[in-house]
Design a binder for these strands. Structure first.
Lengths: 71, 71
DNA sequence: AAAGAGTAGGGTAATTGGGGCT
DNA sequence: TCTGTCCCAATTACCCTACTCT
């Protein structure tokens, strides 16, 4: 269920992942992350998708988390 | 609400622990430390978790606090 | 219209991932 | 069992200039 369609800039996503903005652009170019293009050619990313990617690596996490709300 | 932890690179964590970056990677692979993967496959670590481990705080979720000292 | 910040694009060096071995 | 070092392939970071957005 889509909650928000908030769009993030490459710089925002880069800060979230602790990577270079260029790297985020590369992800979009490689189709690893959905991106929306402005008429000027700049990219925007959906926060919901970025959040999902930031959740981490299921299967290598520490212990069991408390029952948290599902996405 | 998740805390916006700063993410650290394997090299940074390795410097903090005075070990080889490869060792940090193995900790993550073994599930002994939480890790977040970038779409490219590289790992990022939460500074808060790393700090907790550095302080030797058993309160952290490591599930590995045994006095099992043997080779 | 002008200026500043951010972004796109290309190219090159450094880091990282994975497996195997000492 | 755990860590460090070797290999190679992939990913990422920093350099530059030009264009876009506010």
């Amino acid at each position: 269920m889509e909650t928000e369609d908030r769009l993030l800039t490459p710089g925002e996503v880069a800060s979230l992942f602790r990577v270079d903005p260029k790297t985020v652009t590369r992800w979009a170019a490689a189709g690893r992350i959905g991106s929306i293009r402005t008429p000027g050619g700049h990219r925007r990313f959906r926060e919901s998708e970025v959040r999902a990617l930031l959740e981490g690596d299921p299967g290598a996490q520490t212990t069991f988390e408390s029952g948290n709300a599902q996405s």
